[in-house]
Design a binder for these strands. Sequence first.
RNA 1: GCCGGUGUAGCUCAGUGGUAGAGUGUUUCCUUGGUAAGGAAAAGGUCACGGGUUCAAGUCCCGUCAUUGGCUCCA
Length: 639
Amino acid sequence: MIAILLSDGTIQSFPKGTTGLAIAQQMGLPFAKDLLAIEVNGIVHDLSHPIASDSTINWLTWEEELGKQVFWHSSAHLLAAALKIAYPNVKFGIGPPIEQGFYYDVDLGEERLEPLDLAQLEKTMVELAAKKDGFVRRQVSKKEAVDFFTAAQNPYKLELLEGLAEGTITFYQQGDFIDLCKGPHIPHTGFIKAAKILNLSGAYWRGDIKNKQLTRIYGITFPEKKALTDFLHRRAEAQKRNHQKIGKALKLFTFSEKVGLGLPLWLPNGALLCDLLVEFLKKEQVKRGYQPVITPHIGHQSLYMTSGHYEKYQADCFQPIATSVADECYLLKPMNCPHHCEIYAAEPRSYKDLPIRLAEFGTVYRYELHGALHGLTRTRCFTQDDAHIFCRPDQVEEEFSRVIDLVLYVFDLFKFTDYTARLSFRDPASDKYIGSAADWERAEQSIREVTVRKGLQTVSALGEAAFYGPKVDFIVKDALGRSWQLGTIQLDYQLPSRFNLAYTGPDGQSHQPIMIHRAPFGSLERFIALLIEHTGGRFPLWLAPEQVAVLLLSDKYAAYGHMVHQALVDQGIRATIDVRNETMGKKIRDTELRKVPYILIIGEQEMIHQSVAVRTQGGQTTLSLSDFIAKIGLEVMHK
RNA sequence: GCCGGUGUAGCUCAGUGGUAGAGUGUUUCCUUGGUAAGGAAAAGGUCACGGGUUCAAGUCCCGUCAUUGGCUCCA
């Protein structure tokens, strides 16, 4: 007998080699029929997996994330089986579950998937699922596996097999369909009640651009039809928060082919938003000891050779700008740091001067790949809320920690509560980095210590570091769940060395400062895009391009209405007045669609009492004009 | 850059080979109103662009450009 520690904390004895399914049935669990898989000592297994020794178990159903992952992984197999019926010559790559569903990378050879085929695929999947075929696991020898996929003429699975050791290779079969797979899977296909193919894309085999591009089919499945309907509904709702749609509706920004790809044009409302954010952060940075600097949009090409940016990112820069002087070349700046390094170098620095924090809202230009451009989140021209802190080694942790405070302050203010702080370290196997291993070790260690001390919840990512140093990136999701890096803090021992930056220490000797690159917003464009998606365009009062709209019930009250409007404008409130010949319902609707925080209705009652009828999202109330002005003044001040 | 989708009025979109459409916005007129669409009229189009097939192309085919969903990249 073995002892099983159940998720409710009790311990029970079961025969050695029992399975999750057997335990659940024996215990008569009410949710036994919903069980998808079992976690044994932290590892997810099939319900039919024999448990050999004392273990801690955890039941997995659709309600658990891990359960969903197993469900979707099995669904990928179901999709593959359906594909195999429609395209007998299809060759399979990999088919993992993802955060929302799953995909399968397939090589369709000469065939092409048409949108009409997708509906058929969904239908086939549901039909196959209804057969309730079990997912049968079978351990096979490497030879058998190689023979199988050689016969199937599948180079992808053969390549995967090369990386697998004898004794670890398993096949899963449901119905007629057999796939190389380590599992685990749900008991049978019958759990899958609804399927949707979401989209198609190209995807390089093993993520390598040098490899063949396969067709990636994204899909999602559910244990109930209604869950699929709900999912599609939520998705459609999320799409309404798309920053490009709202940006157009609220006249925030636009793009013009004639100006150029990925070059945003800020309309008055959007420009106001930019200005307000810049003004906010400038004030905040003054409080925190930053000094503003301004640098040109171009710089000598050689400047970027010195920094190393040109060597690394030549292809991602706009072509160098030639002048009438031979061999003279300027680069549209892809980064602000080299300029800031030269400002640091402009005068001799003492250890007493440090830290020096140079801040600039610097606009940079990067020639992003055509296919990578994406609204305001990926542009070829964007403004970084950039600053570079030059400090002594003994100041690194303190400075780094202060920057974290600033980033968190900003995120908190804008209610970006659901972010990931990613420690981006180098991949020791890669040669894309500059600088000594010792510097990197020191820098990564510092970042680890500071983030731990700040109590920041972090995830680590190897290979995500900048070429000159490790960083902490603050990542936020958009309406559709795509991740975008906003804030970033980067530690850099390399540029100070490349630019020969120095300060005189207490010992009278020359020392090299350490640089911290940081940007709480990251880029204004991207930050605003995420702000739009998070607020649905309903900005906090202090940021709303139009804060108050004055609506006249009829032109009989025009004189009072204009007086109210002017009083608001005089107080620095962004107010408009609607004098159109329209019904009140119409004016309110139009104003609500512009997501104006406060609507003032002016009619006879208001004129008599020198008051305003205030309509907000929450409801309506009547205030005296002066009380209203005082109220929103306070609201703006407290953000 | 690569793989799919899409491109029709300022905006949102319908239009499966036979005279270019709707809603909304704009302009003008009527209506003078109490919390999300009052009524009428007018203006508004090189159906992204270029080729091809056809008696005939917004519609079918090819190419280009843009856009969108991904892949790759992201200092």
